[in-house]
Each structure stands twice: as C-alpha cells, then as structure tokens.
C-alpha cells in the first residue's frame, strides 16, 4: 500500500526527461501510473526517482497523415477508444475499467509489457512501429522487435517511447475478443483480427494473440490459410485450430494452460466470424 521513498522530477522538456533518465539508471518515467504506482505500493520496485511525463505536451497527440496514424505515447486508453482507430480503439475499450482507462496510456502499456495486456495483440497484428527517443536521437522499431520478452521492452536507459505508429487500415474489418472472468480483469485470452475482403475473398488477414505467450504473437500459418480464400465455417474452424499452435500459455489463477489453449481456438473463431460479418 505504501510506496518506498523516492525522489520526484518534473522536467520542462522531453530532452530534460531523457537526460535525467540516462543519468539515473534506476529512475522510472511516470505516465498514467496505473502499472508503476501499483508496483511501488507493493514495493516490487524501488526507483531512486520518478520522472513525471504528464506535462510533456509533445507526447500527447493523435494524428492521421499519409495512411498512418500517429499516437503520442501519453494518449490515454479513453482517448484511443474514442478515436475510431480500426481494431486498436476496440482493444482500448476492453482495458480494465473506466477509471483506469482515464489515466492509463499506450506508451505506458507497451513500456511495461504485461504479457496479458490488451494492446499487444492488436499492435502485433497491425505491424505497429514504436518511435523511441533517447539523448542520441530518435529510432524506430517494429512492435514485434520492441517487445523483447515479458516486462522487457527494447529501451535503453534514457530512452522513452514517444509514439506508436500504425497504418490506418482503410477498408479493413476487425474484431478484438477478450475472454475475462470478470469485468475489469486482464485477459485470460485475447485475440485481435484485422482483415480485408474483396468480393468475398480475403486479401489480407492478421491475427494477434495475447495472454498466451511471454509476448504477443501473430498466428502466421493460420493467417496464410485464409489468404485468397472465401472463408466458410469449416475453414474458420481449421484456421482457429491452427491458431492454437501459437499459444504456449501457463497455468495460473485465471485458468490452466490446457483451457487457455482451447480458448485461443474459440476466441479466434469468434473474432474471425465477427470481423467477417462487419
């Protein structure tokens, strides 16, 4: 309940924030605070300083240009769910509860990398790109590479996620299906589907899975089975079966590995049917 003692920094600029973070390796950046503060309260982490990002307006934006959507790292779940981004807005609407969504940010979620988080299923399906700023400059990583392992983002000391860039997926239909025991929970299984159909034929399809691996994965082979096909129930059943092969879940308080694996099939099927119907 009670965080350990820490120092607190309110930087005037992004440069000042990254400089401080680089000089103080165990300092932590504070965004929405809905993963960091719970960890502080359990004393799981003991940073020397918190660096408050809230005042950095340049991290708080959402824009559409040239077929891309640029989402500033400090954009909240609530803002994302309201902004009509294919797939991602739907995923945002399932994150936790309204109060958490009012505070939590996309930059925070992907820098934290809980393996059961909602966004990663979508971001991996969308081929999202993460823009990172350090003192040495700006670099970009695909989300796939950025997420190295659970709770392990590709961030060096002094680096911050500044934005997430996704294609606008014009003309795609989509669905995010989250299995949860209770409203407000993390996912037991989450499946994100994006697809493009032309005259009943699938021209592009992306299936992202969350909560069933150390990090989100694409069900590539399952996707391939749908490509250039006119899916019927039988094919969808087979594709969903295939998606199960991409799940390597662990047994925990939310369910056994066996159950979760089965649910990948069920949720994939539902997400596909839902996306095809839209």
């Amino acid at each position: 309940m009670y965080p350990p003692k820490f120092g607190y920094v309110i930087p005037d600029s992004l440069g000042e924030a990254t400089e401080f973070l680089e000089q103080h390796e165990d300092a932590k950046a504070l965004a929405g605070g809905h993963s960091l503060i719970p960890m502080l309260k359990l004393r799981i982490i003991r940073p020397s300083y918190l660096v408050e990002l809230k005042g950095l307006k340049e991290l708080h934006f959402l824009s559409r240009e040239g077929g891309k959507i640029r989402i500033g790292a400090l954009t909240t779940h609530y803002e994302i769910l309201k902004s009509g981004i294919p797939l991602l807005s739907e995923a945002a609407s399932t994150v936790a509860d309204p109060q958490v969504r009012n505070m939590g940010t996309i930059g925070g979620v992907i820098s934290h990398l809980d393996p059961a988080a909602d966004y990663p299923a979508s971001l991996i399906a969308m081929d999202a790109v993460v823009r990172i700023k350090g003192r040495k400059g700006v670099r970009e990583e695909s989300f796939k590479d950025f997420a190295k392992d659970m709770f392990t983002p590709d961030l060096s000391p002094g680096e911050l996620v500044t934005e997430v860039v996704v294609p606008d997926f014009n003309g795609y239909s989509f669905s995010y299906k989250k299995l949860e025991r209770r409203a407000g929970d993390f996912a037991i299984v989450g499946v994100a589907v994006l697809l493009k159909k032309e005259g009943g034929v699938v021209k592009d399809v992306r299936i992202g899975l969350t909560a069933v691996n150390n990090k989100a994965v694409r069900a590539d082979e399952a996707e391939k089975m749908l490509l250039d096909a006119s899916p019927d129930e039988k094919l969808i059943e087979k594709v969903s079966e295939k998606a199960m092969e991409y799940a390597n879940p662990t047994s925990d308080i939310r369910g056994t590995a066996e159950y979760k694996k089965k649910m990948v099939k069920v949720m994939t099927k539902r997400a596909l049917l839902d996306a095809l119907k839209r």
């Binding site: 025991r181 209770r182 409203a183 407000g184 929970d185 308080i253």
Partner: peptide
Amino acid sequence: VVIADGIMQNSSLGDYVVPTAVE
C-alpha cells in the same frame, strides 16, 4: 482462498474475484 504451502496466493482484489455489477 487459493493456498499453496500454507500461504494465500490471491490476497489482492486483482486475484480474489468478487463480482462487479456486470456479473
């Protein structure tokens, strides 16, 4: 109450599931 080796494993409201309005 989930117990392993005598220790309660779900001593937070994140893991000990009380129903919400939705349930």
